[in-house]
Computed example of a mutant assay.
Amino acid sequence: MENLGYYNGKYGLLEEMTIPMNDRVCYFGDGVYDATYSRNYVIFALDEHIERFFNSAGLLKIKIPYTKEQVKEIIKDMVKKVDSGEQFVYWQVTRGTAMRNHAFPGDEVPANLWIMLKPLKIKDMSQKIKLITLEDTRFLHCNIKTLNLLPSVMAAQKTEEAGCQEAVFHRGTRVTECAHSNVSILKDGILKTAPADNLILPGIARAHLIKMCKLFSIPVDETAFTLKELMEADEVIVTSSGQFCITACEIDGKPVGGKAPEIVKKLQDALLVEFLEETKAE
Rank of each mutant, 00 (worst) to 15 (best):
A45T: 09
S217I: 01
N198I: 07
M78A: 12
T193G: 02
K123E: 15
V238M: 10
E2C: 04
M154T: 11
Y6S: 01
V42M: 12
I237G: 00
V238Q: 03
I237A: 00
E16T: 12
D23H: 02
D234T: 09
E15I: 08
T223E: 11
N22S: 13
Q92H: 06
F216W: 11
F139T: 12
E262S: 08
M99R: 11
V220L: 06
E135K: 14
V168F: 02
T247S: 15
T226R: 07
L60S: 08
D107Y: 07
A224W: 10
K266S: 13
N8H: 09
K81F: 03
I74F: 05
F28I: 05
Y90P: 04
S56W: 00
A260W: 03
E222H: 08
Y90R: 07
G258K: 05
A98N: 04
D269T: 15
I204D: 05
F28A: 00
Y66W: 09
L209K: 00
G5V: 01
Q243W: 03
V220P: 07
Q70S: 10
K187Q: 14
P261D: 08
Y6Q: 01
A111G: 08
L60N: 01
M1C: 06
R174T: 14
H102I: 13
L230P: 06
H170V: 02
K128D: 10
E51D: 15
K266W: 04
I190E: 12
D34W: 01
G29R: 04
F44K: 04
P195M: 07
T146G: 05
T137P: 00
C164Q: 08
M212Y: 13
R138Q: 12
E262L: 13
F54Y: 14
V183L: 01
H141L: 14
A179H: 13
L199V: 01
K118H: 11
A270W: 07
P219L: 11
A167R: 02
D252H: 11
G172T: 05
K280C: 10
I204A: 08
E166I: 07
T223P: 00
S38F: 05
F53I: 09
A196K: 14
V79S: 04
V220Y: 06
M21G: 02
I204N: 06
G253I: 08
F28G: 08
N112T: 15
T133H: 05
C164S: 13
N182K: 06
G242F: 11
E69M: 08
I75R: 00
M17D: 08
V71G: 01
P219F: 03
T146Y: 01
P110Q: 09
V168K: 02
Q157R: 14
L120C: 11
E262A: 12
P20C: 05
G31C: 04
K259P: 07
P20G: 00
Q165S: 14
F244T: 00
